[in-house]
Design a protein around this nucleic acid. Structure first.
Length: 151
DNA sequence: GCCAACGTTGGC
DNA sequence: GCCAACGTTGGC
């Protein structure tokens, strides 16, 4: 089983929004970056995901989710009225994909970006790289354990 | 295929 | 609100 991290702005869709969904499950739409999409296409049912809050007062890992549906076309790309509309993605040849994720748990506290940066066990973690803008990224087993050890 | 311009992300 | 970093676009 692989591990991942997915970023979201809590003012748009946070961990509490996922928890409040029917079946505590939501599709993860709106990813418009090829590298992030490729990672989503590699996701398998049962994979675990660190839920990360970005662009907020306290950026950091706030909870855990799991993949319940593997990659399928992101229909929001087909809708001209959707903010994530992309005319180059066609229903018969979709450019953008999404997965469904289910809420697992909230961490007891937020694992802040600053403390992750300070942890030498997290050296090389893609999230912590300067200028990192990927919204979906893989997490090694060692980094997964190190993040959760901070809880 | 190069590269400047532009738009977006995201921490601070 | 600022600005660095980066991906994408489009002219050539």
């Amino acid at each position: 089983m692989a591990h991942w991290l997915m970023k979201s702005e809590p003012s748009v869709f946070g961990i509490d929004d996922l928890k409040a969904k029917p079946k505590q499950t939501s599709h993860w739409d709106g990813v418009r970056n090829y590298q992030a999409r490729n990672f989503m296409q590699r996701m398998k049912k049962g994979d675990e995901v660190l839920f990360y809050h970005s662009s907020c007062p306290e950026p950091g890992v706030v909870g855990i989710a799991k993949v319940v549906t593997e990659a399928y076309p992101d229909h929001t790309a087909f809708d001209p009225d959707d903010p994530h509309f992309d005319p180059k993605s066609k229903p018969d040849k979709p450019t953008w994909m999404m997965v469904d994720v289910k809420f697992v748990k909230k961490l007891k506290r937020v694992i802040g970006l600053d403390e992750m940066k300070a942890d030498t066990k997290l050296d090389g973690f893609q999230l912590l790289k300067r200028g990192n803008r990927l919204s979906v990224l893989p997490v090694s087993d060692a980094h997964w354990k190190a993040v959760l050890a901070l809880e």
